[in-house]
Amino acid sequence: MGILEVKNVNKRFGGLQALGDVNLSVVENSCHAIIGPNGAGKSTLLNCLVGKLIPDTGSVMFDGQSVLGRTPYQINQMGISRVFQTPEIFGDLTVIENMMIPCFAKRDGSFRMHAYARSNQERDVIEKAEIMLEDVNMLDKRDMHAASMSRGDKRRLEIAMCLVQEPRLLLLDEPTAGMARADTNNTIDLLKRIKDERNITIAIIEHDMHVVFSLAERITVLAQGTPLVEDTPANIKGHPKVREAYLGETA
């Protein structure tokens, strides 16, 4: 039994079958990559996992509990964090404030009326946020406006915001898209390190094969909303069906 079990999930948008009978099992403490051509339904699948979309049929279980029928914030509180395809950060806030908010969410739950406290006195939260920033090599940008950073930095910040919550499952939607090569390699190193150090299960959508083959222990290939194959990276590389569907080559 994996920590995440997706069974027979279907999702239609009008006439389009975005997901057709998707089954997916992600083993705890592993890194599972989901690849597939544009429009294959990868992001749609993630949306079904975090409560952004509700599948038409099927079940999604996380650690033995169904996530269906829960709102995004409840699903996050269960231990699932998500990085989006386009960075979703608090652009009007500073980097450190961006980091403090997930720390508050982790410490105080989904709502706490702390109107009389002072944010600059929340030592534990600030410390935790700074350690995480240090970890992703962004402490020098601590007081910058998040919106004014480069796209790569925004991504890194978003990943850090998810990590600081110590999620059990981290969902990444093309985390290195739009990043320079060096940033991509840094991100790969970071993800490898946190997976080893922190018991985090990772599910990653990625087009960059270099990233996929550096990180993934298992790969699922999605095409037109249906999983084609699921296997180890070594086997996927040479799989004729994959070459045909994904790389557009005929075997």
Binding site: N76, F90, L93, I101, Q165
Partner: peptide
């Protein structure tokens, strides 16, 4: 209120409500 964690949450809501929800905040 402006300088409290509560005030920070309110500014975060203005900035990105979606991120709030996916950060476990109601």
């Amino acid at each position: 209120i402006f300088r409290s964690p509560f005030g920070m949450m309110l500014r975060a809501i203005k900035s990105n409500q979606q991120r709030m929800n996916y950060t476990g905040l109601n």
